[in-house]
Design a protein around this nucleic acid. Structure first.
Lengths: 333, 333
DNA sequence: TTGAAAGCGCTAACAA
DNA sequence: TTGTTAGCGCTTTCAA
C-alpha cells in the first residue's frame, strides 16, 4: 500500500496541495472552514508528512544534533535527558554521535557523522564546547550551535553557564567553618573549562578566608577507565602524601565515591578523619556512606535551554544558571 | 555560497550525475579511471551528499531509532553506547526519543516523535520490546525493528537475548555452596521480561539444589524515583521481615547498592551477615564495599548486534549471548 | 485566502 | 560501463 501523500489529502478535501501544506505548517492564513475540512481529511487518511521531502524543499532537517561521551557520567546523562525534552517540546528530533573521552575526536565524528544530517542546530557539551577545530567546522558549515560551559572565546556563539564559582565558594566556606585548614582538590579533565574554574574559585575562597595557596593540594589524576576508579586513584595520591588533607573536593560525585572508597580502605572515618565533597548532586551522592555533600547544578534544565536557544530565531548570547550547595553527612562533623 | 551538488561534481569530472551517484554509493560498476576522476572532483569541491534528497529519492532515511528511559541505568546507557557504535560502523545515524519509565508511553512517543523520521530500523530495549501497542504500530507502518530480551510472542520479529537463566543458576549454586539456605530476591520492573525469568530461574535452581520455594522471599518494590533508592526500600522490606534472608539477589547492580546501604544502616556485615549480588556488572559494582558479586552480560555488544540485524538484508530471527558470573567480596565469606 | 508552477538534490529504472 | 529520464513529496514563489 502506497503511503498517503499531501496530494491525496488535497484531493479528498477538495483544495490545493499548498493549502494542505499551510494547515500542516500552522500558517494562520487559512479560513476556519477550509482548515476544518483539511484536518478532517488528514485524520481520515492518516496522512503523515514525509520528513525527507519537507527537509529537501524547506532546506531544514528538523534535527538537533549532539555528542555523547563513551563513558558513564551523571552530568552527561542528565544533560542528554534535558536535550531530549527540549527537542520534544519544540518539535525537533535528536541525533546523537558518540565521542571518545580520551583522544576526543569531535571533529572527526562531526565530519563523518553528524555533518551529513545537516542538523538545524547542535548542542555542544563540555569539553567539546571548547574544541576549536569543531567550532571552526561548524562555523564554516553555517550550522547554529550552543555551547555548554565553554571557557575560550566565550562570545563566539550562544553559551549556557552554571555559576560554578558561587557554589565552590560556598563549599569552601562551609569546610572552613568545620575547622578544615588543609584541602585537597581532585581535578576533572583539563580540557573541560569548569576544571580550572572550580579549582581557582576554591583556592581564591580559601585565601579570602585566611588560608594560603599552599594549603590546597591539587591532583590531576590521569583517566583510569572510569570516574570512580580514577577518583580512587586520586584519593590515594592525596591521602598517601606526606601531609594529607583533611577535606577533599572533587570535580564530580563519581570521583568523590572513588575517594571515599580509598578512605575506607585506609580505615579513615568520613567525616571524622576526612571530609569529602563532590559536584552535580547525582543520585550516587545519596548512596555513599555517609551521604555526600555536593554542589547541585540544574543540568537537565540547561539541556532544555540549549534547545530553546537553537530554536529561537533571535540569537541569545548567554544564559546563566545558579547552583546550590547541598550539605550532607560527608562533611558534617 | 550555494552548496556543492552532485551535478557540480559531475560537471567538473565530465561525467553524468548518475555516475557520481554510483561512486558515492559504492556501486562496483564504475571503471577505475572514472572513479578516480570523480573522487578527485568530490575532494576538490568538498561535495557532501544531501541526506534529505537521498532519503526522498531512495525512500530510506539512513536513520536508526531507539528509545531512552528517563532514568539512569547502567544497562540502558551501555546499550545505547553499543547502538551508537553499530550505527557508526554501518553508516547509520541514531535518533533517540525519551520514554518515561513509569507510565511508559512508548506508543505515544513513537506516534508523535520517531514515526515522522521514518527510521530504517528501530531498536527496542526492554521493557518496550514487549509493548504490544508499539509493536503493532511498527508492524502496521512496515518498519523493521529488533527486540532486546522480549518475553511475549518471541518469534514475531528479530530478537536478542542473554542467557539470564544460566547466570542466575550459577549464582544460586555459588550462594548455596557458601552455605546460604534462605534467600531474598528484589525484582525489577514487572513489565521487563527478564524479571520473572530471573526470578523463576533462581527459584528453580534453589529447588534443584535441595531447597524449597518457601526459602525464597520475593520482593516487588514499587518504583521510588531512582534504582538505588528503590533498592534501599526493598532491602528494608526483606531485612525487617520476621525471618530475614542471609543472601539477597537483585535485578541489577543499582538495586544491590541500595540493599547494601540499608544493610549498613542496620549494622549488618556484608558478606558476614548478609550476601548481596546484583546483575549487569556496572562500574558501580566495583565500588561498593565490599565489591559486588554480579552477573555480567555483554550489553554493548548486544546493542551493536541489534543494529547489524537491522542493516542485514536477510532477517535474522534470534541472537543469543552468553553471560558470566563474577564473584566478588559481597558474597564470599 | 487560495492556487499553479517550478523546483529542492538525489536515485530508480531503463536504455545505450 | 555509462547516460537519460522521470520522479520522490514537499515548499517556495508568485499570481489570482
Amino acid at each position: 500500500m502506497r503511503a498517503v501523500t499531501l496530494a491525496d489529502v488535497a484531493a479528498r478535501a477538495g483544495v490545493s496541495g499548498k493549502t494542505v501544506s499551510r494547515v500542516v505548517n500552522r500558517d494562520p492564513n487559512v479560513s476556519q472552514e477550509t482548515r476544518r475540512r483539511i484536518e478532517a481529511a488528514i485524520a481520515e487518511t492518516g496522512f503523515r508528512p514525509n520528513t525527507a521531502a519537507r527537509s529537501l524543499a524547506a532546506a531544514r532537517s528538523y534535527l538537533i544534533g549532539t555528542f555523547s561521551p563513551n563513558t558513564s557520567s551523571f552530568y552527561h546523562a542528565e544533560l542528554f535527558r534535558g536535550i531530549m525534552r527540549g527537542c520534544r517540546a519544540l518539535g525537533y528530533h535528536l541525533v546523537v554521535e558518540e565521542v571518545d573521552v580520551e583522544g576526543v575526536s569531535g571533529i572527526d565524528r562531526y565530519d563523518q557523522g553528524l555533518r551529513a544530517m545537516r542538523c538545524d542546530g547542535i548542542v555542544l557539551p563540555p569539553p567539546l564546547s571548547d574544541d576549536a577545530a569543531l567550532l571552526k567546522a561548524l562555523d564554516s558549515d553555517g550550522v547554529r550551535y550552543v555551547r555548554l560551559a565553554p571557557a575560550t572565546d566565550v562570545a563566539r556563539a550562544a553559551s549556557i553557564f552554571a555559576d560554578d564559582a558561587a557554589g565552590v565558594t560556598a563549599l569552601a566556606t562551609h569546610l572552613w567553618a568545620q575547622g578544615h585548614r588543609h584541602f585537597g582538590i581532585v581535578l576533572g579533565p583539563m580540557d573541560h573549562a569548569s576544571t580550572p574554574l572550580r579549582r581557582d574559585a576554591f583556592i581564591a575562597a580559601v585565601i579570602s578566608l585566611g588560608g594560603q595557596t599552599a594549603d590546597v593540594q591539587v591532583v590531576n589524576e590521569p583517566w583510569q577507565g572510569s570516574l570512580m576508579i580514577t577518583g580512587r586513584s586520586a584519593g590515594a595520591t592525596l591521602l598517601d602524601s606526606p601531609r594529607p588533607p583533611t577535606a577533599i573536593f572533587t570535580f564530580n560525585d563519581e570521583l568523590a565515591v572513588g575517594v571515599m572508597t580509598y578512605a575506607r580502605e585506609l580505615g579513615l572515618d568520613v567525616p571524622g578523619d576526612l571530609a569529602v565533597a563532590g559536584f552535580d548532586d547525582s543520585d550516587a551522592a545519596m548512596f555513599t556512606w555517609p551521604p555526600l555533600t555536593t554542589i547541585r547544578q540544574p543540568i537537565a534544565v540547561m539541556g532544555e535551554r540549549a534547545v530553546e536557544v537553537l530554536a529561537a530565531p533571535a540569537a541569545t548570547s548567554r544564559i546563566d544558571c545558579s547552583v546550590e550547595l547541598i550539605v550532607r553527612g560527608s562533611t558534617q562533623r
